[in-house]
């Protein structure tokens, strides 16, 4: 026991001596993650990333606690109660991935009134006292067309694979894609199907529409649907167009096989689940007394021809390409928003 204490003390000394002690202001602060849903690979990766970065930060004394809480059911009322419990538990900052952009506002306001920093990400809240780390889904759609304009300066026909109808994210990405086509008028969207962000649905939907389509040079997607689209083209014996991928492991794997076989080139873009760690560091920066703008934007995780192998290696089977953000990344995002 005594020996253990000595070890602990020396570790603590070492940590204190480390350069991280520059943020010693937050060493007594407790940060909590309020998460509304954990039922898919993206959310699981998000929680794992949080756990990894938060426990390291606790170990090195940057913060006192970084606990993650997930509501049992994906319900706003339950998450509001969870946030109120966190207020009672004495956390200094609450990082939220919200079940609803508005239904948590009352609880978020209670937290702000109690002097707690609230940082929302991915599923953001509209309450003005909270910080928002939002995804620019429009830009995600537009950037795909921009990439294709580099590959095909003369333009051509595009097929659009959309997500789940009626969901905000689907509308936003699609709006971005259409804005991109307006910006690069040499392209024309000749077909649009809903793939529901699932490979099997996307494959069926694309296979159904393919016979009626003219030659297609590119497929713009929303993620989770690129592999299915590729399978549909292969099954119809049509030349494989440039299909933009969405960072899923099966998509990257397929891309790698094609690249090795015939030098296939494309790009892949999505949001890294590790964005939770970005939110963690933003919360830490706010607690540290830094001047942080209320609205920040999540950087995309793009994979190019050159970084494909590296990304694939670090991506779990059936998972999503991920990256954990460090304090420096958070600082860059903050200064970029100023």
């Amino acid at each position: 026991m005594n020996f253990k204490t000595v070890i602990m003390a020396s570790v603590a000394m070492l940590c204190a001596a480390a350069p991280l002690s520059a943020q010693a202001d937050t060493s007594s602060k407790k940060i909590a993650l309020s998460n509304n849903y954990a039922g898919n690979s993206w959310r699981q990766a998000m929680l794992t990333s949080w756990d990894k970065v938060a426990s390291e930060a606790v170990k090195s004394g940057v913060v006192a606690a970084g606990d993650a809480f997930t509501t049992a059911e994906n319900q706003a009322t339950e998450q509001a109660a969870q946030i109120q419990n966190m207020i009672l538990q004495g956390y200094d900052a609450i990082v939220v991935n919200a079940a609803s952009p508005t239904a948590l506002n009352g609880a978020v306001k209670e937290a702000c009134d109690a002097g707690i920093t609230v940082v929302s990400f991915d599923g953001i809240v509209t309450e003005p006292c909270a910080w928002r780390i939002a995804v620019d889904f429009k830009e995600m759609g537009r950037s795909q067309v921009e990439y294709l304009s580099g590959r095909f300066p003369d333009g051509g026909n595009l097929l659009e694979v959309r997500g789940l109808a009626g969901v905000f994210v689907d509308d936003e990405i699609s709006a971005g894609i259409h804005a991109g086509v307006e910006q690069f008028p040499q392209f024309k969207i000749v077909g649009s199907v809903h793939g529901d962000w699932a490979q099997d649905v996307a494959q069926r939907a694309v296979a159904g529409v393919l016979p009626s389509l003219p030659e297609v040079v590119g497929v713009v997607t929303q993620g989770g649907d690129g592999y299915g689209a590729a399978q549909a083209f292969a099954a119809a014996n049509r030349p494989t167009p440039v299909i933009v991928m969405g960072n899923r492991e099966d998509e990257l794997q397929w891309w790698k096989e094609q690249k090795d076989a015939n030098g296939y080139e494309t790009m892949s873009v999505s949001i890294a689940p590790g964005v939770s760690t970005l939110a963690f560091w933003v919360a830490q920066q706010v607690l540290d007394g830094q001047d942080v703008p209320k609205d920040l934007t999540v950087p995309f995780l793009s994979i190019s021809q050159d970084t494909l192998e590296e990304s694939l290696k670090s991506t779990q089977k059936g998972g999503v390409a991920n990256v954990e953000y460090a304090l420096e990344d958070a600082k860059a995002v903050i200064s970029g928003a100023k």
Partner: peptide, 17 residues
């Protein structure tokens, strides 16, 4: 009462009830 607490609503706000 729920709207008074949350300040806003959505169509799925009280499904658990």
């Amino acid at each position: 009462a729920l709207v008074g607490l949350t300040t806003a609503a959505d169509a799925n706000i009280a499904l658990r009830y």
